[in-house]
Amino acid sequence: TTVKVNGTKYKFDTPEEAQKFAKKAADKYNLKVVVDGDDLRVE
């Protein structure tokens, strides 16, 4: 599972880890998590 934040992709072994990271990033930058198929985007 990958998470894309500000054009940078981060790869995670499990969707749970990816979800946690995406949520933290979204909170930090005051953005929202967008599900894109198997991957997540923070925008």
Rank of each mutant, 00 (worst) to 15 (best):
D36M: 07
V42Y: 03
E16I: 09
D36H: 06
T14P: 00
G37T: 04
P15K: 13
K24M: 14
G37C: 04
E17C: 05
K20R: 13
Y29L: 13
F12V: 00
F12M: 00
K4D: 11
K9C: 15
D36W: 06
T2Y: 13
A25L: 15
D39P: 02
D38W: 08
A26N: 02
D13S: 13
D27L: 11
R41V: 15
N30E: 08
A26G: 04
L40T: 03
E17Y: 02
K32V: 15
D38Y: 10
D36A: 07
Y29A: 08
E17G: 04
V42I: 10
Q19K: 11
E16S: 08
T14F: 04
K11P: 04
E16D: 09
Y29T: 05
A25W: 15
V33M: 05
V33R: 00
R41F: 07
D36V: 10
E43W: 06
P15A: 12
F12S: 00
D38L: 13
N30D: 12
R41C: 09
A22K: 00
A25P: 00
V3C: 01
L31C: 11
D38N: 13
D27V: 08
V5L: 14
D27Q: 11
T1Y: 15
F21K: 01
V34E: 07
Y29N: 08
V35W: 14
P15W: 14
V35N: 08
E16L: 09
F21W: 10
F12N: 00
K32T: 14
P15F: 15
L40F: 10
Y10M: 03
Y10K: 02
L40Q: 02
Y10W: 07
G7D: 06
F12L: 02
K11D: 07
D27N: 08
N6V: 05
T14E: 03
K23F: 07
E16Y: 08
D13W: 05
T2P: 00
V34T: 10
D38F: 11
N30Q: 11
A18D: 01
Q19I: 14
D39T: 14
F12R: 00
K4T: 15
K11S: 11
D27G: 06
N6H: 13
E17L: 09
K20G: 07
V5D: 00
F21T: 02
K32N: 10
D36R: 05
K32P: 07
F21V: 02
D13R: 12
V35K: 11
D27S: 09
L40R: 02
T1H: 12
Q19H: 11
D39G: 14
T8K: 15
D38E: 12
D39F: 12
L40A: 03
A22S: 02
D27I: 09
T1N: 08
G7C: 08
A18E: 01
L40C: 06
V33K: 00
E17W: 02
K4Q: 14
R41N: 08
R41Y: 09
K9M: 14
L40H: 02
A22Q: 01
Y10I: 06
F12T: 00
K23S: 08
N30M: 07
V3Q: 00
Q19N: 08
K23Y: 09
V35T: 10
T2E: 05
D13C: 10
K23D: 08
K28C: 15
Q19L: 15
V35E: 11
D13Q: 11
G7W: 04
A18M: 01
R41H: 05
K23N: 09
A25N: 08
A22E: 01
L31T: 13
T1W: 14
G37P: 02
E16R: 05
Y10Q: 01
R41A: 08
K32I: 15
V3W: 00
D27K: 12
K9P: 09
Y10P: 01
L40E: 02
E43C: 13
K28Q: 10
N30K: 11
K20C: 14
E43M: 10
T8I: 14
V3S: 00
Q19A: 12
K32A: 11
R41S: 11
T14L: 04
K23T: 08
V3K: 00
D39N: 11
R41T: 09
Y29D: 06
D38C: 07
K28W: 14
V34A: 05
E43G: 10
D38T: 13
K28R: 12
T8M: 14
K11L: 11
A25Q: 15
A22H: 00
K32D: 09
D38Q: 12
T14Y: 04
V3F: 00
F21L: 02
E16A: 10
V33P: 01
L31H: 09
F12G: 00
E43A: 08
E43N: 04
D39Y: 12
A26C: 09
T14A: 04
K20H: 10
L31A: 13
K11G: 05
E17P: 00
K28A: 09
K9F: 13
L31S: 10
Y29F: 12
N6W: 13
D13L: 09
D39I: 14
K24I: 12
V33Y: 04
V3A: 01
Y10A: 02
A22F: 02
V33C: 06
Y29R: 07
V5R: 00
Y10G: 01
D13E: 10
N30H: 13
P15V: 12
G7E: 05
D38A: 12
D27H: 08
R41E: 05
A25D: 02
D27P: 03
A26Y: 03
D36F: 07
A22D: 01
K28S: 07
Y10V: 04
F21C: 04
V33E: 02
E43Q: 09
L40I: 13
T1A: 06
K23A: 10
D27R: 11
A25S: 06
E43Y: 08
E16W: 07
K20W: 10
G37D: 05
D36C: 10
E16K: 06
V42Q: 02
A26P: 01
A18K: 00
K32Q: 12
V35P: 09
K32G: 06
V5C: 11
T14G: 04
D27C: 13
G37S: 04
A22R: 01
G37N: 06
V5F: 14
R41Q: 05
P15Y: 15
K24C: 15
K20E: 14
D36Y: 08
